Simulated scan of single mutants.
Amino acid sequence: MFEHVLAVIAVRDIDSADGWYRRLFDRPADNNPMPSLVEWQVAPAAWLQVTVDSERSGSSLFNVAVGDIEVFVEAARSRGIDFGDIVDANKGVRLSTVSDPDGNSITAIGGFREQY
Results as ranks from 00 to 15, higher is better:
Tyr116Phe: 13
Ala10Asp: 13
Asp53His: 14
Glu55Arg: 15
Gln41His: 12
Gln41Pro: 00
Ile9Phe: 12
Asp100Ala: 04
Ile106His: 00
Val52Phe: 05
Asp13Pro: 08
Val64Tyr: 09
Val42Asn: 06
Asp82Arg: 13
Val38Gly: 02
Gly67Arg: 09
Val71Ser: 15
Tyr116Val: 06
Phe72Met: 01
Asp88Gln: 10
Asp15Glu: 15
Asp102Arg: 06
Glu39Arg: 10
Met34Gln: 10
His4Ile: 11
Gln49Gly: 07
Leu61Pro: 01
Thr107His: 02
Ile106Met: 00
Ser16Ile: 10
His4Leu: 14
Val73Ser: 08
Val8Pro: 06
Val8Lys: 13
Val71Cys: 11
Ser105Met: 13
Ala10Gln: 09
Asp100Pro: 08
Glu55Leu: 14
Phe2Pro: 14
Ser99Trp: 12
Leu6Glu: 12
Val71Tyr: 14
Asn32Arg: 15
Leu61Asn: 06
Ala89Arg: 10
Gln41Ala: 13
Ile86Ala: 04
Ala46Arg: 08
Arg12Ala: 12
Asn104Asp: 12
Leu61Gly: 03
Ile69Ala: 00
Asn90Gln: 13
Val5Asn: 09
Ala89Ile: 10
Arg77Gly: 02
Thr97Val: 07
Asp18Arg: 10
Gly67Gln: 13
Val93Phe: 07
Phe25Trp: 10
Ala29Met: 15
Glu55Tyr: 09
Gln41Gly: 09
Asp102Glu: 03
Ile81Gln: 01
Val93Asp: 05
Asp85His: 12
Gly58Ala: 04
Met1Val: 08
Leu95Val: 05
Thr97Asp: 05
Val71Glu: 14
Val93Arg: 10
Ser16Lys: 11
Asn31Ile: 09
Ser78Glu: 14
Ser99Gln: 15
Pro35His: 11
Ser105Leu: 15
Val98Met: 05
Leu48Tyr: 00
Asp15His: 15
Tyr21Cys: 07
Asn32Asp: 12
Gly84Asn: 01
Ser96Asp: 04
Asp30Pro: 03
Ile81Thr: 01
Leu37Ala: 04
Pro44His: 10
Asp68Val: 05
Val11Gly: 02
Ile86Thr: 01
